[in-house]
Amino acid sequence: MNVFIIEDEELAVRKLTRLLQEVDPTLNVVGTAPSVRASVKWLESNMSDQALAPDLILMDIELADGQSFEIFEQTTVSAPVIFTTSYDEYALRAFKVNSIDYLLKPIKRHELEASLEKHKRLTSGTEISSRVSIDALVQQLRQQVTPADYRRRFLVRHLSQWVPVEVNDIAFFYSEAGVSLFRTRTNQKFSLDYALDDLEAMLDPEQFFRANRQYIVNINSVQQIHPYFNNKLKLSLKPDTDDEVLVSRERATDFKKWMGK
């Protein structure tokens, strides 16, 4: 089976090629491309060549010159596609039910093997016809990875007037006696007419993390992370808080992944 790899990191290409050979030595990587432009050029040059036409494409979403969705807009992709992505596994879990699969980076051998087996089951004995599935998945993935319209500022009451506060200037949100408040990086304190649950949905998850029921913290406000009993984490924030800010044992792993992105 011929495989075409679309991936902009050379190390990732080598690793994926090695994994493919380990899973199935009969697989033939017929080509690689690091960008949208190079992918379109390769596909248009080789899709009609019986010796090089891919039976399967492994396609990274974020490429050197844009998102791989653009490839589908510029040329016909007739081979089945397995997307590879660094995006959150839980956000993309629903796509496992599609006829085209995805793999979360870093790619693991057993997951690649399962995806290839799925491909074989879906195409065994029949002519590959997956354009509808590809179009549907591309649209869904585009919605997932396109930045959402997160809140950029809040209008808050200050003395006798209303003032705008940029979200980037907010160190953390917190709840006190049933009221939602936030502190700015300069330690100004303001109240909001939103519950923390509502605020969590408004904020960019790359920048803000729900540490516990009482606090949502800006990644730039986290100064130190201390181990705490029962596998919890204790955070030191800037500016200082009046309370201990703890990350629960259940959320500790997600928090460390978030901080390490």
Rank of each mutant, 00 (worst) to 15 (best):
V179H: 09
F182P: 03
A195T: 13
F173I: 08
F209C: 08
D198A: 11
P205Q: 08
F209L: 10
F190M: 02
A211H: 08
L196H: 05
V179W: 02
R210P: 01
S175C: 07
Q207L: 12
M202Y: 11
N187K: 14
E176W: 07
E176R: 12
N187T: 02
N212L: 00
F182N: 02
D197H: 09
S191N: 13
D197A: 13
S180N: 11
S180H: 07
S180P: 06
L181Q: 13
F182I: 03
T186F: 12
S180W: 07
N187S: 12
L192I: 01
D197V: 01
E176G: 02
G178E: 09
D204N: 14
T184L: 10
L192G: 08
F208N: 13
S180M: 04
L192W: 14
F190Y: 15
E176C: 00
L203S: 08
A195Y: 04
K189F: 05
K189E: 14
V179S: 09
L196C: 06
S180G: 13
S175F: 00
Y194Q: 07
M202H: 09
R183N: 08
F172Q: 06
E206P: 00
E176I: 00
T186C: 10
R185K: 15
T186Y: 13
F190R: 03
K189H: 15
A195D: 15
Q207T: 12
L199K: 01
F182C: 03
D198V: 03
D197F: 01
L192A: 11
L192K: 07
K189D: 11
N187D: 12
A177I: 03
R185Y: 14
G178P: 05
G178Q: 07
P205R: 02
R185F: 15
E206F: 03
E206V: 04
L203W: 11
R185W: 10
D197L: 01
F173E: 14
R210V: 02
Y174E: 14
